[in-house]
Design a protein around this nucleic acid. Structure first.
Length: 500
RNA sequence: GAGCCGGUAGCUCAGUGGUAGAGCAACGGACUUUUAAUCCGUGGGUCGAGGGUUCGAAUCCCUCCCGGCUCACCA
């Protein structure tokens, strides 16, 4: 919390003082830029370019931020920018009269509304020949717009810290950042469209929960004053969506923020966006097909291609994903076999053989998953479903009928990174109770991330849950790989930062 | 949490013990189809913060803050 401050009026830099003086001058002339509410805009800036043939010589009214000014004595050129693009404007002193001097009060970043006719300069640039103009808002701090020539840019805003803390500036001046973040938004829109087309109902479920469940992670804890009790912020969407499945919503999904009280890194933000969906009467293979179709759909509709590249590796989402059993993948890349993971002792020896540090709390399944992460994942560059996960790390998934140490669960990998997690959902309430009991034992033994025992969820399942396939996708991770970035902060508008 | 790197003008950066710099931006001037406009001129700094060493510190030392990367943690 900051105390209110009027420091900008006295202490700010010369650059700010000069802009404040310009503001005063405008106000003294009765031209307060902040007095405007509405400006009649007939065209977005990009449409002036697109519809030039029809618009040539016609009068238009446009608005945007000033991003460049080139004053040449008694003629002035400037560029305006709005969310669709940029447009050059042109003013002549002899047409503007006294108003021409107002140009001296313009700064980069100010909002301008102009009315004039459309023409092309002798160099062929579509331009509005301004008849009247109005300043619609003033920027009293300098906005670091880069100089540009074609695709080249000079003096961009590079400082990563400033780009994250002041994302509005990053969005304004760095087209790549703007494009990447907008792509993320469009991805989410297309995911919704894809699922809506297939009859899924989008729902919202509680963020505040008595006990956060559905995943293995440490929750954030908060307090409800009126009830005077502790709540946890959700770490997954799973258990409430399954309750809706029980309630007869056969195809259900949620795209929502989940919160995990863990480290921050290039691949982890404490709050991130998860898609979870559940489809009654579908199995693991149905979900694999759904994932293949989903990636292809989003790729085509948002990026106009199914081919993506990262670190020199190309993938093509028009092709089916590879499928490999987890233990087969481990054998292929480490030489370790299922027999090496028969007992905890042998599993620990096997892990050490491939250089993995085993913690006291690790179970056999936990060790197998560590081997997957450390030794196998990097090899899964092409889209791949790894299936058959250990039972003790998959307490919400059905057993494999002929291999009860493993479950009907897969993870999807692309470019060596996990992007999807899916099960044939466990719907046997008696077995679910036993699985929760195992998790409870782990928790008692000190594993803070073991799944909590959720009696209310078991009670719901006892009324009958249909067989179903379920899927979770980390939207941020998906956005990272489709936009080709290694940092989760680049696909979150306002990533978590320390107080600066 | 550990290691490495970084924080200097509004922006991008140079400056490794001796008067704080450059380009762009800003300000003043010239210029009526320019476009990284051009030309002439001017101002602008808590060198992340605090402490120390020194005649003298942006620079060397210590502590702290913030960030990046890697690792650990996070199935």
């Amino acid at each position: 919390m900051h105390e209110p401050s009027h420091h900008i009026l006295e202490e700010e830099s010369q650059l700010v003082q000069i802009r404040l003086q310009k503001l005063q001058q405008l106000r003294a002339m009765g031209l307060d830029p902040f007095a405007h509410e509405r400006y009649e805009v007939t065209h977005a800036l990009q449409t002036i370019h697109e519809e030039y043939e029809q618009l040539e010589g016609k009068t238009v009214s446009v608005a945007g931020r000033i991003v460049a000014i080139r004053k040449m004595g008694k003629a002035t050129f400037a560029h305006l920018m709005d969310s669709t693009g940029k447009l050059q404007i042109y003013l002549k002193a002899d047409e503007q009269g006294d108003k021409y001097d107002l140009i001296d009060l313009w700064d980069l970043g100010d909002y301008l509304g102009v009315q004039g006719f459309v023409f092309k300069t002798r160099t062929g640039e579509v331009t509005v020949h301004v008849q009247t103009f109005t300043m619609l808002a003033k920027a009293i701090r300098p906005v670091p717009f880069p100089k540009e020539k074609g695709e080249q840019r000079w003096y961009e805003l590079h400082d990563v810290e400033q780009r994250y803390r002041q994302r509005y500036l990053d969005l304004l001046v760095n087209p790549d950042s703007r494009q990447r973040l907008i792509s993320r938004c469009r991805m989410i829109r297309e995911i919704r469209r894809f699922l809506d087309e297939r009859g899924f109902l989008e729902v919202e479920t509680p963020v505040l929960q008595p006990m956060a469940g559905g995943a293995a992670a440490r929750p954030f804890i908060t307090h409800h004053n009126a009830l005077d009790r502790e709540f946890q912020l959700r770490i997954a969407l799973e258990l409430h969506l399954k309750r809706l499945l029980i309630g007869g919503i056969d195809r259900v999904y949620e795209i929502g923020r989940v919160f995990r009280n863990e480290g921050i890194s290039t691949r982890h933000n404490p709050e991130f966006t998860m898609l979870e969906l559940y489809q009654a009467y579908a199995n693991l293979e149905d979900i694999m097909s759904l994932v293949e179709a989903l990636f292809r759909y989003v790729a085509e509709r948002v990026f106009g291609t199914t081919v993506f590249e990262m670190h020199g590796v190309q993938v093509d989402f028009s092709q089916p994903w590879q499928r490999i059993r987890l233990m087969d993948a481990i054998r292929e890349h480490t030489g370790l076999t299922e027999a090496d993971f028969e007992t905890l002792e042998s599993a620990i020896r096997a892990a050490e053989k491939v250089g993995i540090y085993v913690e006291r709390k690790d179970t056999i399944g936990g060790i197998i998953e560590k081997v997957l992460e450390k030794c196998v994942a990097e090899h899964l560059q092409q889209p791949t479903f790894v299936y058959g996960f250990p039972i003790d790390t998959s307490p919400l998934a059905k057993r494999e009928p002929d291999n009860p140490r493993f479950t009907r669960r897969f993870e999807g990998y692309i470019f060596g990174k996990e992007v999807a997690n899916a099960f044939s959902e466990l719907n046997d309430p008696l077995e679910q109770r036993a699985r929760f009991e195992q998790q409870y034992a782990l928790r008692q033994a000190g594993d803070e991330e073991a799944h909590p025992f959720d009696e209310d969820f078991l009670h719901a399942m006892e009324y009958g849950m249909p067989p179903a396939g379920g899927l979770g996708i980390g939207i941020d991770r998906m956005a990272m790989l489709l936009t080709g970035t290694d940092s989760i902060r680049e696909v979150i508008f306002f990533p978590q930062m320390r107080e600066g």
